[in-house]
Amino acid sequence: MRDKFSLDGKRALVIGASNAIGRAIAVALAEAGADVAVATTTPLKDEETAANSCANEIWALDRKGFAQAIEAADEADVNALIERTVAELGGIELLVNAHDLPFAKPAPETDFAEWRRVIDVNLGGPFLACRAAGQRMLSDGHPGGSIINVASVLGERGLANGAAYCSAQAGVLNLTRALALEWARGGVRVNAIGAGWTEGMAMAGDDESRAKLERYLPYKRLARPDEIAGIAVYLASDVSAYLTGQVVWVEGGALSHV
């Protein structure tokens, strides 16, 4: 079974490697045998550092890869990133959109520019990357393309002060389904991981709000990033060749509660 799940020979791009989930997925894909390019999108001054340290982990596993910082909502940046992946890794079979712009604010105080920024980065970004990688995977004409969008329970449940964020997340879920149907016969699968509250997730807030969260979660704890990454390996692998257009929720049962 271990061999069947193997990602040997696959070339992956993970966008959002400076957040905990993206990083864990990038490393898990590499451990499972894929070459992995990573990109960060946070407008922080240590963005390059985050990507580089993730790439270092990938190199330490003897896999190929590189690190780059991009603007997730910039067409030219995203297209160039996909091209670089193809050029340096020799192709692309796997794309993971894990970047995330956290945002929480009461709606009456939210500027339209802020709304647009959240939608552009969290929904537009995955669209741009799917479009560019999908074009490549479809024209390569061989099955085995797999795209994984990381979304959150906030795409399924509303949250006060989360109008923009929740809307973008919900958009990612249906972007996933629509692209899956469009590309189902082209050998490209599109699925989402619906992540629950996870360690290192900015939306989980400060220690106090985290402690509150933990009281209500069925597990009484947040997910570890590696617990999200396991599903990514399955969705990336050809063992899930018949699985497309789905959201796989990894949330410890949080959504089961009334």
Binding site: E227, L243, T244, Q246, V248, G252, S256
Partner: peptide, 23 residues
């Protein structure tokens, strides 16, 4: 996968394996 340690935080959920049917 569902029987293994790879899904230690997955709970109460379904994985639909249907070639895109329910999408």
């Amino acid at each position: 996968l569902l029987a293994s340690g790879l899904t230690s935080y997955m709970n109460g959920q379904a994985i639909v394996l249907d070639g895109g049917g329910l999408a």
